[in-house]
Computed example of a mutant assay.
Amino acid sequence: MKKNRFLIILTISVGLFLLSFSLSYQLITNKSEDNKIAKIENNKLENDDKNVEIIKEEEKVSPNTIIEQRILYKECGDLIVTNQTPSTDIINMTKEKYENYLTNKKPFLRVISFSSNKIVTWGEKEHLCNKHFIIGEEDGKIAVFKIGEDGERLLHKIFVDYPVELLMELDRDEIKKGIRVDSEEELSDVLENFIS
């Protein structure tokens, strides 16, 4: 009886050993086949990636693009920021074409950022911005000048009843040089001193 038990246990043990061995062998061979298949698929994907051409659409000016123009006026230190929509002649321009356009039309400006949603430009000018006035002389009379786009003085108003000759010499010299004022309120105050 003891021998029978021993033989049964031995037979079951050998059977289990053989079964586990064959299962392990199948798992290992399946894994290596899976690895081979995975390598073949990866190589195929890599080759496909080499043949894929990536197309990136180039940014262009659209009718909805906002153009932000920042100009620093060095004489007064003012930074004027304006937003505008593009004119029809620059719609569909790429960044490079727009930069060439600026070089020809507004050489003092340069592009800081460019996208189809918003373009930001920067420029500097050596003169006053158009927020200022100059009190000066025109035809021997006290006059007020506005500042033009290129810093030129544009005649705004002449006080025909107030000749410069009637002023004291110090005031006359200041008027001939031009007195810069920075707002309409300041303009009224300074004019009051000369024409009252």
Score class of each variant (00 low, 15 high):
I8D: 03
I8G: 05
T11E: 02
S13H: 03
V14Y: 10
V14E: 02
G15E: 02
L19S: 14
L19E: 10
L19D: 09
F21G: 10
F21C: 09
L23M: 13
S24V: 07
Y25P: 01
Q26H: 09
I28N: 15
I28R: 15
T29N: 14
T29F: 06
T29Y: 08
T29H: 13
N30R: 10
K31S: 06
K31Y: 14
D34F: 07
K36H: 05
K36L: 06
K36G: 04
L45M: 12
D49N: 15
N51Q: 11
N51Y: 05
E53G: 05
I54G: 00
I54R: 09
E57M: 08
E57F: 06
E59D: 13
V61L: 11
N64Q: 09
I67F: 05
I67Y: 08
E68Q: 15
E68K: 14
R70I: 13
C76E: 04
C76Q: 05
G77F: 09
G77Y: 11
G77W: 11
D78V: 14
T82A: 08
T82W: 04
N83R: 13
Q84L: 05
T88K: 15
T88A: 13
D89V: 11
I90Q: 04
I90Y: 00
I90D: 02
I91R: 05
M93Q: 08
M93A: 03
K95N: 10
K95V: 00
E96K: 14
E96I: 15
K97T: 07
K97H: 05
Y98H: 08
N104P: 00
K106N: 13
P107V: 07
P107Y: 09
L109M: 12
S113H: 08
S113W: 12
